[in-house]
Design a protein around this nucleic acid. Sequence first.
RNA 1: GCCAACUUAGCUCAGCUGGUAGAGCAGCUGACUUGUAAUCAGCAGGUCAUCGGUUCGACUCCGAUAGUUGGCUCCA
Length: 648
Amino acid sequence: MSKVKVTLPDGSSRDYDQGVSVKDVAFDIGTGLGRASIGGRIDGEEVDVSYQINEDVNLELITFGSEEGLDIYRHTAAHVLAQAVKRLYGDVQLAIGPTIDDGFYYDFDMDYRLSEDDFDKIEKEMKKIVKEKLDITSEVTSKEEAIAKMKELGEDYKVELIEELEDDELTFYSQGEFTDLCRGPHLPSTKKLKANAIKLLNVSGAYWRGDENNKMLQRVYATAFYKKKELDEYLERLEEAKKRDHNKLGRQMGYFTTDPSVGQGLPLIMHKGAKVIQTLQRFVEDEEERRGYELTKTPYMAKDDLYRISGHWDHYKDDMFVLGDEEEVDKDLLALRPMTCPYQFMIYNSKQRSYRELPVRYAETSTLFRNESSGEMHGLIRIRQFTLADGHVICTPEQLEEEFSSVVDLVNYMMESLGIEEDIWYRFSKWDPNNKGKYIDNPEAWERTQNQMRNILDKLEIDYVEAEGEAAFYGPKLDVQFKNVHGKEDTVITIQIDFALADKFDMTYVDKDNQKQRPIIIHRSSIGCYERTLAMLIEKYAGALPTWLAPVQTQIIPISDKHLDYAYKVKEELAKEGVRVEVDDRQEKVGYKIREAQVEQVPYMLIVGDDEVEANTVSPRHRREGDLGAISIEEFKKDILEEIENKA
RNA sequence: GCCAACUUAGCUCAGCUGGUAGAGCAGCUGACUUGUAAUCAGCAGGUCAUCGGUUCGACUCCGAUAGUUGGCUCCA
């Protein structure tokens, strides 16, 4: 029998008989390791412990308890979930059951409507399956056999999946009476799962293959950990995250409210929320002006003619609020604006442009209206009317790289100012060549622009993930992504290179050879949409916004009524420097007023009583650090102004 | 738009298998003039989301509508 050489991650190697299993190797290294191994990685590819090694390989063992093993572990848990559901509800067809970031899900097609009330029962059955200590075995079959097998089992979705696979060799995994098509790897036995560390989380609908024209299946989300303690910690983290939910906190703290008679997705932003937005907006508009942007103020609605030129009428009409009746031919048809671009393009087109004036940079604090579907609205994150820090850079092809880079620089500056540069990441959103309806049909231009954009991104050394089918209909995007407290990804900002609309609007400039040329357009936001940004800030800071953004920056707390005059004097001192300051003049105990200011997350409280009046001082109390001791009014003023200036 | 759950006082929530509702906080009134996270007492607050049905009787069961939440799809 010939030998194979197995090289381990530490560089050492061992010789074995051909056909040795991963498990054998693990036990050969050590019994402890043997028992702990739940999979292996051979030349980078994950395999079962039962995998037989037939040639010289690099082997890395994946052990129970390891980060990388968790995926295998959860994948097996997903199979156990499917097995339990099949046992309990009989006529169930399986769709897909992948692992995701914090757990896994499985999609089922079944008549019985699952609800969370069924979870107990399903979890019990899963526990039973774990207790049954079923061996998990794999079997490789040909495509033809696989299809026959799945047809026999009545698994239509699996048949569909297999038919589209290119491979002729397919793997099935079985445990007890349950068999599923799966690439693997899996645990060697269901007994390796910790039954009390598995939890079903929620059930929802999900279209087969994510296509709304397909049947809606039932998706069960769940998670699994190696230990109950890890599960408990995870659940606790979820609870903690929910406490930061802007949709709860924002309402509780009086940032915004909603009312059914106003309508869905139409939040009423109250003083505190409006104050934060105003602060942000002034900051953004000033910074953009400094960076050479021209401010514009364009109409909230326009005739359909404008949207027909831009192509929005064809691509986007269902999502716009159209005013007027399309049947009445002799009356204008208007639509509320879902974006600012066509308006700013009209400004560009209002005169002939020379290459000398390019780049032209337009910025506008722009209220937009989008008719989101009813199931989409979420707090301040997905709404029907919102305010975007919008803008467009119109430049020559030669200027594109520099202009794009400076937009990225602006965005980075904004993210740093908000203190969220560590919480966001970049997504390079490309078109999907197979989705003809969604994108402008010009494959050559798509590929060219995307390559251009990739080159710029790589030059800027930006880390990004690529996402197919996330582009705008007219061009690729660089998106800034953020995760909300529910773990869901939202786009905060997008920067787009547009190769199409300049054509549609017949935008030109005259170059130095006196020839008319097409400019390139960059669509961009600097800080995103103010409502969504506010939501993000509330969640990031759990309501305790940085001082420069806090709606109230200083709360003055007089000990008793007789200190009111002094309190107002201090207020005046600070207010004239632009500090947002209030006096709590209610007849309450100091402790009570402090507690309220604390709950409101006011950065500084200034306690003033006899001592302070006497010495002409204030006693600041920081919301996190507590009592800071008495200092002069001047000193406090200097400190807080510096903190506001530095956006600390 | 689709799937599921939820909707009780301004807010947070209790109310077992049907017998017309309760707490804390907030609010109002009064007393207390207060030194670093809740002073005390009293009062007032609800067509139990809305509409319809079953029932002698519905907050409770059923249906429709609206809103909210979590997903799916969509997202210029």
